[in-house]
């Protein structure tokens, strides 16, 4: 699969026409300089450790991914077949950039990396994910995270 303009016309049009959620409020939370921020990743690639049950289509759950998970431990059970998985197969950081962020923490560009990261199913209606958002925000508060990097596929 490829970029939107390279997709089959019907698939690309469906994505262009996709009804997206809108929000009445526009919160904008300030924080410390980037070099002092602790960053967590939220991936919507439906990643989880091998051996755990796959995400079901339409799932609104979140799976907590400890930062200590090895690259070889993760598999992807996203429902969609309309995007490239070759990048994920070659290099996990193409989708879930924990090694890159660890490098940036070592270089002092960011303050650090969270102990826990988060995986959800990207095609699920966000209206069903209020509890999931509560859980992610709650865990981030516990770990004093002050930046969430949202990475779709």
């Amino acid at each position: 699969m490829a970029r939107l303009e390279d997709l089959p016309p019907a698939t690309a049009q469906r994505l262009r026409d996709l009804e997206c959620p809108t929000f009445a409020a526009t919160p904008f939370v300030a924080g410390p300089p980037l070099a002092r921020r602790k960053v967590a990743v939220v991936t919507s690639a439906a990643l989880h450790p091998r051996g755990d049950s796959p995400f079901r289509p339409g799932s609104a759950e979140v799976r907590l991914l400890p930062a200590t998970l090895g690259a070889g431990d993760l598999v992807m059970s996203h429902v969609s077949i309309n995007y490239d998985r070759g990048g994920f197969q070659r290099d996990l950081d193409t989708v879930y950039p924990l090694r890159r962020l660890a490098d940036m923490a070592s270089a002092g560009t960011i303050g650090g990396l969270a102990e826990t990261h988060y995986s959800v199913m990207g095609s699920t209606d966000p209206k069903a994910m209020e509890e999931t958002a509560d859980r992610i925000a709650g865990q981030c508060r516990q770990e004093a995270v002050d930046a969430a990097l949202l990475v779709p596929v």
Binding site: L15, A133, R141, L150, V151
Partner: peptide
């Protein structure tokens, strides 16, 4: 949804239109 819960966020957007 996370920002409204007090967590600063940034998203990498693969589909600009969205």
């Amino acid at each position: 949804m996370l920002e409204s819960r007090g967590l600063p966020t940034v998203v990498v957007a693969l589909i600009r239109l969205h």
